Computed example of a mutant assay.
Amino acid sequence: MEIGSFDFLKQQDLPAGALYMVATPIGNLGDITLRALHVLNAVDGIACEDTRHSAALLQQFGIHKKCLALHEHNEVGGAQTVIQSLNKGQRWAYISDAGTPGVSDPGARLVHEVQKAGFRVIPVPGASAVSCAISASGSVMLNSEGRFQFLGFWPNKTKERDAWLQDISTSKKTSIFFESPHHIRETLLILANALEADRQVFICRELTKKFEQLAALQAGEIATWLENAESLKGEFVILVAARQASPDEPLEQASLMLWANALSPHLGSKEIAAVLSQVLGLSKKEAYQIALDAKEAKD
């Protein structure tokens, strides 16, 4: 069925003088959205991270538009060219090489400049390696109750890498990062040595592509997995499960306040302190201070 036969697309509002941030496939052309095709066909021009790369995508879908190269090295200058076009009432789109613009790709500076100039920016959602990996990760996300931190691309500098490892190993959120095939072996071995042997790790290779591979491991199994891996080619997305708190680890202040706030409407400060002390093992002095803080916050 041709795109033009979807009448609901014709009802989409496409304001003039606006920039459309359009997500494109991360590997499988079938993941382009109907709305993305509709917008790319409707705009006056398309700014691309790499015009040569995007040309193949646009040609595949018969889209012939004026294209402008806009990448990390000319993003601010390129943004001014786009703004001039928006000032004439034109519609422009921006696409990165793959996925959602601005997610470890250029786009943030462009959006900032366009918004600063007073023009509207409209997101057109679609493929994202981060959300794609999360959706298939299962238990790696359980300890953090769905919360995660996206770190971008694994750093090459030792000092920054050490800071990352500290962050990942202690975080109570699932950590997600990208890595290239050139460094993936070294990176995974470093990760394995830095984590507890039973920490869960989810390795995604070539997401959405023909040779897609997903592997759920414990950190202690990484070395063996690398020895037996059929291929380490392609782009990688790595998820590391949140650190699981030990039973005797003290609760954070925010968690204690949740307890106190829940009890506050029903009990006085002394009674709240008694409950916190008995149930959570806090000292009477600490428990009473938490109870007072909760009462003051209510007032």
Rank of each mutant, 00 (worst) to 15 (best):
K173F: 11
L207R: 07
L188V: 11
D293M: 10
Q149M: 13
T81D: 10
V124I: 15
E296W: 02
L256S: 01
L263R: 00
W225N: 01
E249M: 15
M21Y: 10
G118C: 06
C132R: 08
H64P: 00
I168M: 09
K284E: 11
E221I: 09
F178I: 08
K116H: 14
F6W: 08
K157H: 15
S180D: 14
G77I: 06
L280I: 10
E75K: 10
I83C: 02
A216D: 13
F202W: 14
D7F: 02
W225M: 00
N41P: 01
G126T: 11
D162R: 13
F148H: 09
S231R: 11
G281E: 12
I134R: 00
Y288R: 11
L9Q: 03
L251K: 12
E160T: 15
L70D: 09
C48A: 10
L276M: 04
E113T: 02
A192M: 06
A23Y: 05
G107L: 02
V121D: 01
E75G: 14
L267H: 14
A18C: 08
N28Q: 02
A18L: 03
Q218F: 02
L57N: 09
S175C: 13
I238Q: 01
Q90D: 05
S171K: 10
F177V: 07
L239G: 02
L9V: 00
I190G: 00
T158L: 13
P15K: 05
K159D: 14
S171E: 09
H71L: 03
G281Y: 12
H53R: 06
S277H: 05
S283K: 15
I83F: 01
L214G: 06
I122R: 07
I272G: 06
G89N: 10
G152L: 11
L57W: 04
A294Q: 01
W164H: 07
S269D: 09
E230K: 15
R199G: 04
K233C: 08
G281R: 12
I83D: 02
S104T: 06
P125M: 12
I190M: 03
M257R: 05
G4Q: 13
E145I: 13
F6C: 05
M141F: 15
C67H: 06
P265H: 09
S131C: 14
P265S: 12
I290Y: 02
S104R: 03
I184W: 04
Q278N: 12
V275K: 10
A274D: 10
P125K: 12
L68I: 13
Q84C: 14
